[in-house]
Simulated scan of single mutants.
Amino acid sequence: MTATEELIASAEAHSAHNYHPLPLVVASAEGAWMTDVEGRRYLDMLAGYSALNFGHGNPRLIDAAKKQLDRVTLTSRAFHHDRFAEFCTRLAELCGKEMVLPMNTGAEAVETAVKTARKWGYRVKGVPDGRARIVVAGGNFHGRTTTVVSFSTDPEARADYGPYTPGFDIVPYGDLAALREAVTDDTVAVLLEPIQGEAGVLVPPAGYLPGVRELTRERDVLFIADEIQSGLGRTGRTFACEHEGVVPDVYLLGKALGGGVVPVSAVVADTDVLGVFRPGEHGSTFGGNPLACAVGLEVVAMLESGEFQQRATELGEHLHSELHLLVGTGKVTRVRGRGLWAGVDIDPAHGTGREISEKLMERGVLVKDTHGSTIRIAPPLVISKEDLDWGLDQLRSVLA
C-alpha cells in the first residue's frame, strides 16, 4: 500500500464516516496550493468552503497567531483580555454595527442568532412567550446542529435526527410573495443566505434582498444575513448583501474570520438587538479568546484595505467569463455565482459532480461536488490569474 492508501484506510477504520473526502492526504499547503504525502501538488479551488479566503499559511495571519501564542491563548470570558475590546470594536466598525458577540463556529453563530431573535421578539417586539417564529428559505445550509437541521430541507442533513425544534417556517428561496405570506405578528426574524452556497451557489433574483429588507422593516422583523460563506471578500464585496445595497439587522460571520488558522465566528448587530442579553444568559468558553481575537483582528485589517475585495471582483469577472463560454457546448448547462465563487452544473452526460471532482483531482485541481452534477469553485482570493487559468484549463480538458 502507498502512504496515501495506508492513511486513508486508517482514517476509515478509526473515524466516523460523516464525510466522503476525495482520496488524497494533504501534508502541507501554501497560498492556493496543497501538497500531499506523496509530494504531489494540487491547486485548491475550494478554499475550505471560504474559510481560506486569504490562502493557506498567509504570512500576516500566521505571524499574528505566533505572536499571540507567546502571550496568552485562553482566559475564558470570566476575565477581560487585552485583544477583546479592539477585536469587537474593529469588527463592529467593519460591519457598520455597534456590538459583536463572538463565538467559534458558523453553526454556533446561527444558534446564537436564533436565541437572539427569540429573546428580542419577547423583550422588544412583545411576542407572547413561546410563540416566536423565524422564517427561513428552502435549500438553506446554516449548519448541522439539532436546531439548525430542524429547518433544513435536505433529507441527508435532516433524516433520523428528530424530534425537531419547532418555531420555523420554510418558504422557497427567492420568492418574495411566499415570504410576505409567511410573516405573521409572531415572526421575529427572517434568516437567509444572501447567496446559498451548499445549494449550488444560488444567487437570488435581482430585487429580492431589498424586498426582504423592506418587508422586515415594515413588519418589525429582524433581517438576519448568514454571510458565513458569502461574506468577507468572497463575492467581491465585504458582504454579499452589498451587491443589492442592503444592510441587514444582523450579520452572521465565520469561516474566513478565522483566517484558516482557528475557528472564529460572530454575531454582529446594533445595541437594540444584541443588548437583550444579560450576564449568564449565553456564552462560550472559547468564544472571543485571545488567539481568536488576534487572528480576527488581522483579518479585519486585511479587509479594511479593500485589496481582497478588488481581487475577488477582477478575478471573479474573468472566472465567470471563462465558465460561461462552456454553457451551451454540451458540457456545462448553467453557471451561477458572484466574485470568486461559482456553481457549475455539469451536463450529466459527462458524469456526476463527484466523478468530475475525482477527474480534476487526478489532474491536480481540487473542487467539491454538491447536489448531483454540480461542482463548486471557490479558490483562495490570493490565487494568481495564471493559476486560475491553469485550473480552468484542467476543467476544460476533463470535459473534452
Results as ranks from 00 to 15, higher is better:
Val72Gln: 14
Tyr42Ala: 12
Ala47Lys: 02
Ser50Val: 07
Ala29Pro: 00
Ala11Leu: 15
Ala16Arg: 14
Glu30Asn: 14
Val26Lys: 01
His14Gly: 15
Arg41Asn: 05
Trp33Tyr: 13
Met45Trp: 06
Asp36Tyr: 09
Tyr19Cys: 08
Glu38Trp: 01
Ser15Glu: 05
Arg77Lys: 13
Ser76Glu: 10
Ser76Asp: 14
Thr35Ala: 08
His20Gln: 07
Asp36Thr: 14
Glu30Leu: 12
Asp44Trp: 10
Ser50Lys: 04
Ser15Ala: 07
Ser28Met: 04
Gln68Pro: 00
Gly57Phe: 03
Asp44Ala: 15
Gly39Arg: 06
Ala51Glu: 13
Ser28Tyr: 10
Ser28Cys: 06
His17Pro: 09
Pro21Ala: 10
Ala64Lys: 05
Ile62Leu: 11
Gly55Tyr: 11
His17Ser: 15
Ala29Asp: 03
Leu52Phe: 15
Leu61Asn: 05
His14Leu: 15
His56Phe: 10
Glu12Gln: 11
Arg71Ala: 01
Ser15Gln: 06
Phe79Tyr: 15
Leu43Glu: 09
Val25Leu: 02
Thr75Ala: 02
Tyr19His: 06
Val72Glu: 14
Tyr42Gln: 05
Tyr42Ser: 07
Leu46Trp: 08
Arg60Ser: 10
Val26Pro: 00
Ala16Asn: 07
Arg77Ile: 05
Asp36Asn: 14
Asn58Glu: 01
Val72Asn: 06
Met34Glu: 02
Gln68Cys: 00
Glu30Cys: 14
Val37Lys: 02
Tyr19Trp: 04
His56Val: 12
Ala11Gly: 13
Ala16Met: 09
Val25Met: 01
Phe54Asn: 08
His17Cys: 05
Ala27Thr: 08
Ala16Ile: 07
Val26Arg: 01
Asp44Glu: 12
Arg40Asp: 06
His56Thr: 07
Gly57Leu: 06
Ala32Ser: 15
Ser50Asn: 13
Glu12Arg: 13
Arg77Gly: 03
Ile62Thr: 14
Leu46Arg: 04
Asp63His: 11
Leu43Ala: 10
Ala13Asp: 11
Val37Gln: 01
Arg60Tyr: 10
Leu46Ala: 05
Ala32Asp: 12
Arg41Met: 09
Asn58Gln: 04
Leu24Pro: 00
Asp63Arg: 07
Asn58Asp: 06
Asp63Ala: 12
Lys66Thr: 13
His14Asp: 12
Leu74Asp: 01
Val25Ile: 12
Tyr49Met: 04
Met45Pro: 01
His17Thr: 11
Leu22Tyr: 07
His20Pro: 05
Thr35Lys: 06
Gly57Arg: 04
Gly31Thr: 10
Ala11Lys: 10
